[in-house]
Amino acid sequence: MKQKTKVNSEMKREYAISSETIGILPNFDENGFLNSKICKKDGISIAGISPFDLIDTNLRFRGSSMRGALDGAQAILNKKNMNPLILDRERDIILFPCRSPIREDCVWLSLRHVKSYKPSGVRHTQVELSNDSTIILDVSMHTFSKKMHRAYELRYKIQAQTLEFEEKAMEAGVRYHLMKGEVGMNYEGGGLVE
């Protein structure tokens, strides 16, 4: 059962997920409370909140939320469960869960930091990370591969949608002139300006 904690948009520096963040792992303290082990290129630190809440806090700091990011990924991918999410599109920070995000044992990896992966027995996958570290996950290589492909699909689709939107926004349109009417609160006009 997922541990409930109050999450707000206040960001502690040590909780920040950046482009240097490789993965976020569950880590239970001596009292059994779920914390996060944050793996970065330059080392590992512990955050005093669960991975789910850590990611949610980072998303809220950027003006979104875990719910919004997962709903957005679901709409783009048209898939219901265990979707990756975009934490920061401009910095290409895409995180994907190796299990269901609501499970306490869910490991989140950053797509940009997965160098390679291979089977490690029947039900495990060894992942080589961008800093040449490795992690053995308790998911099959087939399952891990599907999650990687889904993260790449999300990256591709969001880039394609953004490009299409920006191209349409830059197309020449019609000119108009609006001004507040003498009576009321509405802006009036909208007639074409020659």
Rank of each mutant, 00 (worst) to 15 (best):
I136W: 06
M82F: 06
N83E: 04
G190E: 04
E128A: 09
M11W: 00
F61G: 10
K40I: 03
I44Q: 10
M179R: 09
V127Q: 00
N58I: 06
G189Y: 04
N81W: 11
S65R: 07
H124A: 06
N8I: 09
E167Q: 14
Y156K: 04
E20N: 09
I76A: 02
L70S: 03
I49L: 01
R91C: 15
Q126N: 14
L111E: 06
S140C: 00
H113A: 01
K79E: 14
E104L: 10
N83W: 01
F61T: 04
R150W: 04
I44P: 05
G173R: 11
Q159E: 09
V114L: 03
L192K: 13
E166Q: 14
L77M: 02
R91H: 15
I38K: 08
K115T: 14
P101Y: 06
R103W: 02
G48H: 15
D29K: 07
K4D: 13
N186W: 13
T125R: 02
F165G: 09
R123H: 15
L59M: 11
D88T: 07
D29H: 07
N131S: 02
G191W: 12
L163T: 14
P119V: 10
A172H: 14
L154R: 05
H113V: 05
E182P: 04
Q161P: 04
L25N: 03
A75K: 12
R91G: 15
R67N: 11
K147V: 00
T134M: 15
K6M: 14
R123A: 15
P84R: 01
N186Y: 09
H124C: 02
A172W: 07
N81F: 11
R13S: 11
M82C: 12
F96E: 00
H177S: 13
I17P: 04
D138A: 06
E20G: 09
I55A: 03
D29P: 05
K147M: 00
L95C: 05
W108M: 10
I44R: 10
I55F: 03
I24N: 00
G181H: 06
R175M: 06
R150M: 05
K2A: 14
K80S: 08
C98P: 07
A151H: 02
